[in-house]
Simulated scan of single mutants.
Amino acid sequence: MAWNEWNQPKPAPAPRAADLVAHQDDLGAVGHEAHVLHGALLKHADMAGHEPNSTTTCAPPRAATALTRHHFAMGAALTTTTTLWTSQLRALLQACAHISNHLDHTKASHARDDAKIRTTIRGIATPEVPVSRLSTYFK
């Protein structure tokens, strides 16, 4: 690139989209909804005829077993569907639990950090504090 090309005016950068902002109340609401969804799934979702909290391996329902025994292809298909449903349901339950637990932890962690900062600032709130001392609190 020649100097005269480099020296030409450059187009203005495209405006940036707003950064993602999440407030504590928003995080708490998302975590709460994930917890509620987790509870509702445990209560209402059918885990292949097992108790919702069961961690046993998914066994095919009686209908699939009976159909397979009578050589109907639908038996194997029903077993596959049940296995996939249970697998996906467990993944969704884990995701809900992870979201809820992570946001609860994040909220508590930020609250502790805020309390520590408030305490620190109150301890150095005199006008005579030199800048060099202030910088030790913000590393």
Score class of each variant (00 low, 15 high):
90 R>E: 01
19 D>R: 13
37 L>W: 02
55 T>H: 09
68 T>V: 07
86 T>G: 15
82 T>A: 12
111 A>I: 05
53 N>H: 13
63 A>N: 12
66 A>K: 09
58 C>I: 11
116 K>F: 07
138 F>L: 11
10 K>I: 08
110 H>D: 15
1 M>V: 07
82 T>C: 15
16 R>F: 03
137 Y>E: 11
60 P>Q: 10
115 A>F: 02
111 A>F: 04
23 H>E: 15
52 P>L: 08
118 R>H: 11
122 R>P: 04
123 G>E: 11
38 H>K: 03
101 N>E: 08
83 T>M: 12
48 A>K: 02
46 D>Q: 05
37 L>G: 00
139 K>R: 09
59 A>W: 06
59 A>M: 11
25 D>L: 02
5 E>Q: 11
19 D>T: 05
103 L>S: 01
102 H>R: 01
7 N>D: 14
61 P>C: 12
129 V>E: 13
24 Q>I: 10
64 A>I: 10
100 S>R: 00
65 T>W: 07
58 C>Q: 03
5 E>H: 03
134 L>R: 07
133 R>M: 10
108 A>V: 03
123 G>W: 03
135 S>C: 05
119 T>C: 07
95 A>K: 08
86 T>F: 06
114 D>H: 09
71 H>A: 09
133 R>A: 10
15 P>G: 07
130 P>G: 06
124 I>M: 15
57 T>V: 12
108 A>L: 09
122 R>Q: 13
23 H>S: 15
85 W>T: 13
30 V>D: 00
90 R>Q: 04
87 S>H: 11
67 L>G: 06
114 D>T: 13
51 E>C: 03
105 H>P: 00
105 H>A: 13
35 H>K: 00
18 A>K: 12
37 L>C: 04
37 L>S: 00
39 G>Q: 06
53 N>R: 13
99 I>S: 00
50 H>C: 13
132 S>N: 08
130 P>L: 08
48 A>P: 04
38 H>R: 04
78 L>D: 04
40 A>H: 01
91 A>C: 04
30 V>N: 00
118 R>F: 04
119 T>W: 04
5 E>P: 00
85 W>C: 07
95 A>F: 02
32 H>E: 14
65 T>R: 11
61 P>W: 06
101 N>T: 14
112 R>A: 13
46 D>L: 04
66 A>G: 04
129 V>R: 14
51 E>D: 15
109 S>N: 14
101 N>M: 02
49 G>Q: 10
15 P>Y: 03
64 A>D: 04
72 F>S: 15
102 H>L: 02
87 S>F: 10
130 P>Q: 12
10 K>M: 12
100 S>Q: 02
14 A>L: 12
4 N>C: 05
88 Q>M: 03
123 G>K: 05
109 S>Y: 09
128 E>C: 12
43 K>T: 11
98 H>D: 00
117 I>D: 14
15 P>H: 11
26 D>C: 00
6 W>K: 08
69 R>E: 07
63 A>R: 10
98 H>W: 00
44 H>R: 08
100 S>M: 01
96 C>T: 02
103 L>K: 02
106 T>Q: 09
71 H>I: 02
105 H>C: 03
96 C>K: 00
121 I>V: 15
85 W>G: 06
1 M>S: 10
71 H>W: 08
139 K>M: 08
106 T>P: 01
122 R>S: 12
